[in-house]
Nucleic acid binder design. Structure first.
Lengths: 335, 335
DNA sequence: CTGTTAGCGCATTCAC
DNA sequence: GTGAATGCGCTAACAG
């Protein structure tokens, strides 16, 4: 058995209170301090966080629910978040929702059972109900990347609609008019980015035929199938805008397999998938989110909430985003 | 405050023991069962795992130390492992070692402080010292993918040397003689796979010039730089064997950027990177590990250890691996 | 099958 | 500055 605070009481002859106080940074007489330190050293004593948690009602653990852990987007976020939290002594309990809303609900309940101090979520669901159980128990929740309508919940995200509009304006600036969009049709980011797409198209006065609009699941397959369908169209679009990591990946896979070449036959502009910019020819144009900042802000907010030093009302942080230019968009007026 | 077992005692008039028993799956009278269930429902009662942990000395939490969480290899493993464990009611506390041995040591200590019931590791380090602290406390440890020499520790891995040999024999079967290898030079898998490479080359009687052997870090950059160097060689290899996910990725990136085309100018055979087989042309030959099986076995073993129903001596599971054929290897005698 | 009692290891009142 | 007592929420012995 590991040594407990009682063992060091025996060893030093001091009382539990004194020892506990020292451990938690309180002042004790120098000679007692030495005694305690010596005993700790000798017995390899380490605080039992479980016992401490029972009385403080804190676990120093934060739960994170991600829509799909295999997504590189989530992996990158986890990397940054995990490092920040661990520096502060917090553990990260991770739950993979596998793109399934029911699993997501269960995950939140599971985390609550684990008595996490706070919950970070990159959600699958587009309504807040899966987090109700957390709210009831006053467990702080911070949404990352995907906010939820009318949720009144802390959230860190990017200016989705704006950046999508800018990206499409870039395409339009290269004189594209027949632009298709592949996006997720259900969740927040997909919808917002689609709105941004339409903003730009409407402002330019361009129509979007129904078969140029490809809403669907947030997954590689949807990107793949949609791009395939677009390429088979009699009146092919001259440019395609893909609005997330997975969809970009799938669409590029379909393009690579096809007989068409980019940007000669078709121009593409993707989202988040920085990896691809180094992998395929030509270098892709890509909207890239500031992952580290996203992670840092989210960690910062959840810690503030846990320590109770944040204002009452929901904090919403919207980060600016930039577009990485490449060679995957051809100017139709050149050549 | 959340409801406790005492609240439901008040509500039902039953004793703590009866309620506890019911919660833990014991048999109680049907009428009491109904009373308890009703009270649980009404009070939104959920077990406080912390309190339970204090008395059972179990946290129902398993820690996992991964060499780099952003690696898709780890993401896939985490996906499978997390799902299995959560089904059994176990949480997964995740620690990213960021490819740094010192961080890895700290991570293990951190997990021990969190009193995890067991530790899974996909390690950075090639010696067991980072796990000593766990062993001292009798915390079960299972190594995944990368075993450690003389560690006498449970381990789930693949037949690295064999499958590498087979892969190289496939290249040799296509009449390649000038075969280069890019591998990680330090950790277990890199060394084993290199041995397999040499087994095949030696058996065939082919020499491996020093500049065809590219050991280095387990990272994208190493794959990229090495492939670039190989392509610039006066006497270029006709085939290149890449021995892990990251290196394969980097090498393919370099190849895509180069003036050479695959398999016309050079043949390649990669490892683990199934994603790539769908992304680049031509379809790549790839050794692919049975990720799900790897995860399942590891989860199974750690749970057995925790429940104390595993034999004393270390369990070592070696899974068979197959090679996915593609078109990235040209038969030198054809055309 | 049920109730009573006693801790798990620690932090936190209070007195002193 | 220190020590004795109390309880966090639960499980595990018992005895009934």
């Amino acid at each position: 058995m590991a040594a407990t605070i009682r063992d060091i009481k025996e060893k030093t002859g001091l009382s539990l209170a004194t020892i506990s106080k020292y451990i938690n940074g309180g002042h004790v007489l120098p000679e007692n301090k030495e005694k305690i330190e010596a005993a700790i050293e000798e017995l390899h004593y380490e605080v039992n966080e479980i016992a401490r948690g029972l009385v403080t009602n804190k676990t120093k653990t934060i739960g994170i629910v991600v829509f799909r852990i295999e997504s590189l987007f989530n992996g990158t976020l986890l990397h940054y978040i995990g490092n920040i939290l661990r520096e502060k002594g917090y553990g990260l309990l991770i739950c993979d929702s596998c793109d399934d809303e029911q699993i997501e609900v269960d995950n939140v309940k599971f985390l609550i059972g684990k008595k996490v101090d706070g919950i970070l979520a990159i959600p699958v669901s587009d309504n807040f109900s899966f987090l109700e159980s957390a709210r009831q128990r006053n467990i702080p929740v911070v949404l990352i990347d995907r906010s939820i309508k009318d949720a009144a919940c802390d959230c860190v995200k990017i200016d989705n609609r704006n950046v999508a509009r800018q990206a499409v304006e870039y395409l339009i600036g290269k004189h594209h008019e027949k632009i298709a969009v592949i996006c997720s049709g259900k969740e927040y980011t997909g919808i917002e980015r689609y709105k941004g797409f339409m903003d730009a198209m409407n402002a330019a006065g361009y129509k979007v035929p129904e078969n140029y609009y490809k809403p669907g699941m947030h997954c590689v397959e949807h990107g793949y199938e949609s791009m395939k369908a677009l390429l088979e169209l009699e009146e092919r679009p001259t440019a395609v805008f893909m609005t997330n990591y997975e969809i970009t990946l799938g669409a590029v896979m379909a393009l690579q397999e096809s007989k068409y070449s980019c940007p000669k036959d078709i121009s593409v502009l993707g989202f988040d998938n920085l990896l691809l910019t180094h992998l395929v020819e030509p270098r892709m144009c890509m909207v890239v989110q500031p992952m580290q900042e996203l992670a840092e802000k989210a960690a910062e907010i959840i810690l503030q909430r846990i320590e109770g030093k944040a204002e009452e009302k929901p904090i919403e942080i919207v980060l600016n985003t930039q577009m990485a230019e490449g060679d995957s968009v051809r100017d139709l007026w050149e050549n």
